[in-house]
Simulated scan of single mutants.
Amino acid sequence: MIAKIMGVLNVTPDSFSDGGQHFDIADAIQKAQCLIDQGADIIDIGGESTRPDAKPVSFKDELVRVIPVIKTLAETTDVPISIDTSKPEVMLQAVESGASMINDVCALRVNGALETASELGVDVCLMHMQGVPKNMQLSPVYDEVIEDIKHFFAGRIEACISAGISESKLILDPGFGFGKTYEHNLEILRCFDEFKSFGLPLLAGMSRKTMIGQMLGDRDVSTRVTGSVAGAIIAVQNGADIVRVHDVEETKDGLMVLGSVS
């Protein structure tokens, strides 16, 4: 496979695409196994929605949602587990329970997150987000979106290294839909290879997002699968090393075709 597939598992009641579908622990574990059977290289488990206007949850609630799932999967599969969180307390307990990667939409900017990630020594995905989920889509503005994101990455990489995190542990995600307009998202996709200048693995997460619906003429979330696969293929063509998706089997098929002619 020319890129790794990260399967999305939201153990939440309110995520934009699959909120509530896997809120029960048994359902979440069953869904994770399904994603693995379909070919997921990584399972990304999140217990707090980061959709636009999402309400924050306490770290205790987040732990109750994700830790039993992580523990069970760590005992039953060798597929790497990523914890999708910004909270140091959740990072710590998730890694102690079997997670081997932190996927942080706040790029370790929450108080204590840098120090915790440094102590844990696992891979960390640093995502760019302008604002916070509650307000990020109100009126995002950039001087130059690609250069602004690159400036952000440079600062976060420096902060991570200063905190004792090896640069070899870092992954970068420009954050499609996190404080970006439709035009910003298109520009990021077109110029995705610009972020290769850091020499680090790149992650792209567009699966079923509003930008895909807009490309398809304001299509509903449930009908964005084909568009999401096309977006993943374009991202990989432009340098993505990991694609974060809900539809693993369909994405794997698309990437296998791309790999056959690349």
Rank of each mutant, 00 (worst) to 15 (best):
D193Q: 13
H151Q: 14
F176M: 05
E187Q: 13
L200K: 04
S166P: 09
A154S: 15
I157P: 06
K169P: 12
L170H: 06
E158I: 12
G164R: 09
C191K: 08
D173K: 07
L200N: 01
S162L: 12
S168L: 04
I161P: 03
I157C: 10
R190M: 13
E187T: 14
C191Q: 14
R190V: 14
C160K: 05
C160M: 10
C160V: 11
N185E: 09
N185L: 02
E167H: 08
F152P: 13
F152D: 08
E194F: 10
F153A: 04
L172C: 05
N185A: 00
F198E: 01
T181Y: 06
F192C: 04
G179Y: 06
F176C: 06
F153N: 01
G179W: 03
I165Y: 12
G179M: 05
L189V: 12
K180V: 06
E194A: 15
L200A: 07
D193K: 09
S166K: 15
A154F: 11
L172D: 01
A154M: 14
E194K: 14
G199C: 08
F153V: 00
L200Q: 03
D148V: 11
L200R: 02
A159E: 15
K169I: 13
L170R: 02
L186M: 14
L186T: 04
E187R: 13
G175Q: 02
G155P: 13
F192K: 01
F198Y: 07
L202I: 04
S197A: 15
I161T: 13
F176K: 00
L202T: 00
F178Y: 10
I165F: 08
N185H: 07
D148L: 09
E187F: 00
F178L: 03
G199V: 08
K150D: 09
S166L: 14
K196R: 14
